[in-house]
Design a protein around this nucleic acid. Structure first.
Lengths: 331, 331
DNA sequence: TTCTGTATTGTAATCGATTACATTGAATTT
DNA sequence: AAATTCAATGTAATCGATTACAATACAGAA
């Protein structure tokens, strides 16, 4: 086996005795090629072990079949569940993923968008790290789809969970099963999801004729530590609520850590929380969990993006897909 | 602002009154260009808002500054910690990452390697999903670095944790603090890490004059469910060990789930386990945790790969970097 | 028989950079 | 002053595909 350089269309063309145009046509399944020729060319391709240089193709077609995906963090199961869905769907459709982490910083997002465009991605899927979107304009006119969160002042295709209804339903179920007071440990209210969840919770209470008590409501930032601290504050009081709604999974972990740390458990304490991850049902407290279809969010985002890419800039309306959540009762 | 098509070197050259060669030289920091000209060209680049077409460049240089990374699973914190390190280091050096999931399947790995090569990646970092490596030959002559696990019969650059010493040290510490019997819940012994951890455990016992008891040793497959089942089997017996060594984080989670499920706790039970993740220290049992430097493993893998890429096929020896682990005592 | 249409294939330009080699003019050497 | 060197730049080929347009052959139409 000689170590010849990689075969090109030209080599294939020569050996098969046809032109490069014909080889290219076969490669691209052009119907106008005589079936015999197709066979011949394909055989030659096999013989030479030819593999097309996709970079050359990209140069000519300005399509790379590569999508940029920006997530705030890779060490975050929630985001990675979404990314899993994205990759799965894209792979199925012949695309691959350049994955980048924004570290939740706006400047990084901007920079990454520039880098991705330079690399010629066909579109971008972004899980926003913050609530502002001004800087996302730099993606235009590349197709862009947001996932999980929307951003203010930047209308854009997006796939999100129905945070409002999810929160509403969870709180409603709790009240129906006899909750008397539901505390709330929320995320950063600058984020769309944090606001919507709070609003759902609030609405459910009102719906049951209750007014949320000011002092039962605490806001933090969606991170583990924040959940720990706020849970400590809430449960450290003399008269804590019987139910606590924790606005996301990581805060839930933090809160659970606080609870597990305590010498004596809190009897009759119930937890509500978002996102059904492996550990959400681990802790020895009865809980109601709002499950978002994370992978589906990813898949739908990929679908939406590809439909934009493959049908050109047809429809100009932005589409926001809001996926249903479901409840899971634990214990 | 007219919507002109994107500027090219040619446009810049014309406007600046120089040749494309000169523009290219400025772009690439070629020292032979007169400083005045550099200024002129750079100014023109700004004016035209020029951004180089990296695909064209790749075609000419056959370098994409893109690395393929293959992990068995995205929903796995351990792997994603490694990937975080990889991305961080690569980004710092001007590379980006095409991330793919092999779903732990060999055929997928093969297919992905082919796809990545077609896309022109400059090298591949792979977290092997299985212990066989025959199929990895298809990556040659692309630079390839394995992380976390090595594979049998395929010598290759790799970065791994020191599983043997990690396991040894943990068991040793346990024995020094008075462990009488240490059970072992291991992973699939076809994996290098599973074997090494078991050997370390075994050696520590022998070193203390103990012989591991056949019946205290169970093997599973590194997944949560497996940890649950084996823990159940082990602790369900009439005379369970006082310490249990659980071979990885996910089995640890499963085992912990079993323990938390029990009405009455097992007093005096101690856990040994691998990988220091957020939840490893959550559970109400005293534990010794072997912490692998996950992100550093990723960073080192990236470094090693880039050194191969950037220095050409100089050194022919494969290098296996074995990183130290550390112990963390909980409770 | 000549013309037109269709099916198939070929020729050559093109995508946007890089770079080997050629060229120019000025500085230095002799 | 002629020869040599060097710095700075330009010309044009090249990377490996795609594709507009041209060309060819052969069918059936007139």
């Amino acid at each position: 086996m000689k170590s010849e350089r990689k075969a090109t269309v030209k080599d294939v063309a020569e050996r098969a005795g046809v032109s490069t145009a014909t080889v290219s046509r076969v490669l691209n399944g052009d119907a106008r090629v005589k079936p015999d020729t197709v066979l011949l060319v394909n055989r030659t391709i096999e013989e030479l072990n030819y593999r097309m240089n996709r970079i050359a193709r990209s140069l000519k077609t300005s399509r790379t079949h590569t999508i940029g995906v920006i997530a705030p963090e890779f060490r975050n199961e929630f985001f990675m569940n979404i990314v899993t869905g994205v990759e799965e769907e894209l792979k199925k459709r012949g695309y691959s993923v350049i994955l980048c982490s924004s570290r939740e910083r706006r400047e990084e997002e901007t920079e990454l968008i520039g880098m991705l465009r330079d690399k010629g991605v066909d579109g971008i899927i972004l899980i926003p790290g913050s609530s502002e979107g001004e800087h996302l304009k730099s993606a235009r006119p590349l197709p862009l789809v947001l996932v999980d969160r929307t951003v203010d002042g930047f209308p854009c295709d997006a796939v999100v969970g129905d945070n409002y209804r999810g929160a509403f339903n969870a709180a409603d179920m709790a009240l129906n099963e006899g909750a008397r007071r539901i505390g709330f440990i929320g995320g950063d209210m600058k984020l769309s999801t944090a606001r919507e969840r709070f609003e759902g919770y609030e609405a459910a209470l009102k719906n049951h004729g209750l007014t949320p008590r000011e002092e039962d409501i605490l806001f933090g930032d969606y991170h583990e530590e924040s959940g720990y601290l706020l849970m400590k504050e809430l449960m450290g009081r003399s008269d804590p609520p019987d139910y606590v709604f924790i606005a996301n999974y990581f805060m839930h972990l933090g809160a659970a850590r606080y609870l597990l740390e305590q010498k004596s458990p809190f009897p009759g304490l119930h937890i509500l929380s978002f996102d059904d991850m492996p550990l959400a049902s681990f802790f020895p407290y009865s809980s109601i969990i709002v499950a978002q279809p994370m992978e589906e969010m990813g898949r739908r985002a990929a679908e939406l993006l590809l439909s934009r890419i493959e049908s050109g800039p047809g429809e100009r309306e932005h589409r926001v897909i809001r996926l249903d959540t479901s409840l899971r009762k634990v214990l």
